[in-house]
Nucleic acid binder design. Structure first.
Length: 589
RNA sequence: GGUGACGUAGCUCAGUCGGUAGAGCAGGGGACUCAUAAGCCCUUGGUCACUGGUUCGAGUCCAGUCGUCACCA
């Protein structure tokens, strides 16, 4: 198997509120499962994301709380780091969009698109506040909805009828800051020339039928074929300034610079790794061995399947300062290989909503129940094809009857017999009979079968296949009954328990992308020293004017490989086996 | 309003090229006892959202209706 390069790009959380399990189920967890699997396969994996630091909602929140936008985003950024570490999302780099690196490259992106004729200037009508002397962002205006008549519609959307609006459509508009009446004024902006790129985009989408999700592809094609120009800049105070002398007060539209984060985070990762050019292996190399995956929620599909490819195509090749002087005219960026977008996770039938208090704090859950029970449940209901719903009783039930009863108990019953009867050492097996061989063979083919589902990013299915092997192992034990054999034929019992332990060893790999903490613990019990995966570290990087905290992955000690167990007879267990998974008892509702 | 997706057992989901529905969990029964009363064996559950159409035959194709969701206007 040749070594592939896999770039796992994960949606950038917007730093104006905490993460909830919906975010985790939708993007971060699937990305992590996939990245862990690819690492086990021996591929070169880089997984990047970061906090989206700019934009109006952060400014609004800051004004409300009497803080600066920077204080707001830094507060949430720090919490994002803790949250994702707690739930075990193994980013190679989780950074943010207010770094010097990101600013520099974002402005370069703008210049490249302009030079390549992909941006053009046009006038746009916007609401302007005379009392404040600035253009008002759409969501800072309210007025009467022209569609339903609701009198508190926001400039971007009416909360009553749900229709999206243009602020200039509002009847009797007023500023949400001071209540004054804004006037309509023209503002000049840059637009991304999507019509000019329709053909190129459709060509990009033309060979995805065999593996893209059907919720993603048709939708994207339709949009690509009809796409109109889209604003690329905004009148904003908190963002990355348009790098032109006549563009005072204008910033790059937050959406685009956040997308660019996939590239800039890879660049930053490379620099932090001491191989400043290594990012090019992922974004430039055209050897057919690079695959870029974008893990996102369904609301972001078009941005990733159409707009981001358009930007990448539009940049064509890179100029200074990040191409190392190596790029030629024919080079262009690699585009996303797959965009396995998930649907939404709801909570008790309701959408997650910070303002309505419909939320589940991830750190809380991880503290209370452990990361793996949460990961296990979220994977088994992962909204791959349709919206899913978090249910507390289902969470407890799946934990107790599947994670604990099937997997945890399998480990416990096997290891405790070994501990008690074989002095805590993996027993030395005799000859394998047909039943033993079938059991071992099943555990070996499971690597292909589970791997096939993981490669196709069908994670629920992959977990299901791995759990089938756990069931088969329980069946093997019941069939063989080593607790009986131990009385009559100790050598036979040794073989049976060896086989079971070896399959458990394999299972600890097969399940590890999903429930890494539990699997690491099993391996420790089995007597292994080296961990399967590396460690996540919260780190402070950058020089004085660019200091920022990030989440990194240190994979130096990682030893896991996606291969069947070769468990050594005689290996000493680490101690008396004790339960891996706690039972979840919910208070009666 | 436009585009697209989804709606299958109490719950979570499979159903490939159309041939009167499957799994796991829950529920019911049983034999065992190594194990966190877990595991194993057997088993009860479905007008496949609705209405029409094509077909010898449709969960599976077509049209429409309803419901849910996302994006776009």
């Amino acid at each position: 198997m040749s070594r592939e390069r896999i770039l796992v790009c994960v949606a950038w959380p917007y730093a104006n509120g905490d993460l909830h399990v919906g975010h985790v189920a939708g993007a971060y967890l699937p990305a992590d499962i996939f990245a862990r699997y690819q690492r086990l396969k021996g591929n070169q994996v880089v997984m990047v994301s970061g906090s989206d630091a700019h934009g109006t909602p952060i400014v609004v929140r800051a004004e409300k709380e009497g803080k600066t936008p920077r204080q707001v985003f830094e507060y949430f950024h720090a919490r994002f780091l803790e949250t994702q570490k707690a739930i075990g999302i193994s980013y190679d780099l989780f950074t943010h969009t207010d770094t010097r690196n990101h600013h520099v490259i974002a402005q370069q992106m703008f210049r490249r698109l302009l030079e390549n004729g992909r941006l053009f200037k046009a006038k746009q009508k916007q609401l302007y506040s005379e009392t404040q002397g600035k253009f008002l962002p759409d969501r800072l205006v309210e007025g009467t909805c022209p569609i339903c008549g609701y009198d508190k519609a926001r400039g971007d959307q009416c909360d009553n009828c749900g229709n999206l609006l243009d602020a200039t459509q509002l009847i009797n508009p007023r500023s949400r800051i001071d209540g004054s009446t804004p006037i309509v004024r023209e503002s000049e902006h840059y637009f991304l020339d999507l019509p000019a790129m329709r053909e190129q985009l459709l060509a990009y989408l033309s060979d995805k039928d065999s593996y893209w999700r059907n919720t993603v592809l048709d939708f994207s094609r339709h949009y690509a074929s009809t796409a109109e120009p889209r604003a690329f800049t905004r009148d904003l105070t908190w963002g990355i300034p348009v790098p032109l002398p006549d563009a005072e007060g204008k910033c790059i539209y937050v959406w685009y610079e956040a997308l660019l984060g996939y590239l800039t985070a890879t660049v930053e990762w490379a620099a932090l790794s001491g191989q400043p050019d290594a990012w090019q292996d992922f974004w430039y190399t055209k050897d057919g061995q690079v695959k870029i995956y974008n893990f996102i929620g369904k609301d972001n599909i078009l941005f990733h399947t159409v707009l981001w490819p358009a930007v990448l195509l539009g940049m064509g090749r890179l100029g200074e300062p990040w191409d190392g002087g190596r790029s030629g005219d024919t080079l262009r960026f690699n585009l996303p290989y797959d965009v396995p977008a998930n649907q939404y996770l709801n909570l008790g039938g309701q959408k997650f909503s910070k303002s309505l208090g419909v939320s589940l704090d991830v750190i809380d859950l991880a503290d209370k129940y452990g990361a793996d029970p949460v990961r296990f449940y979220l994977t088994s209901i992962m909204p791959e094809n349709k919206d899913a719903d978090w249910s507390w009783s289902d969470f407890a039930q799946r934990n107790n009857s599947e994670l604990l009863a099937k997997w945890g108990n399998l480990v416990q019953r096997t290891l405790s017999q070994i501990w008690r009867n074989f002095e805590g050492r993996i027993p030395i097996p005799g000859p394998f009979n047909e039943s033993d061989q079938a059991m071992l063979a099943q555990s070996e083919t499971a690597f292909n079968e589970v791997g096939e589902s993981l490669d196709a990013v069908r994670l629920r299915e992959a977990l299901g296949k791995a759990m089938e092997l756990a069931t088969a192992t329980n069946q093997y034990l019941d069939r063989e009954a080593p607790w009986k054999a131990i009385k009559a034929d100790r050598a036979r019992a040794a073989t049976q328990l060896y086989v079971a332990a070896r399959v458990i060893d394999s299972l600890s790999i097969l399940l590890s992308p999903f429930i890494p903490f539990t699997c690491e613990a099993v391996r420790k019990q089995l007597g292994y020293e080296a961990p399967l995966f590396g460690e996540q570290i919260i780190d402070i990087v950058g020089d004085e004017s660019d200091r920022h905290s990030v989440l990194r992955y240190d994979g130096r000690r990682a030893s896991g490989t996606w291969k069947p167990s070769t468990l050594q007879p005689g290996q000493l267990l680490s101690g008396e086996p004790k339960g891996l998974v706690a039972k979840i008892e919910l208070p009666a509702a």
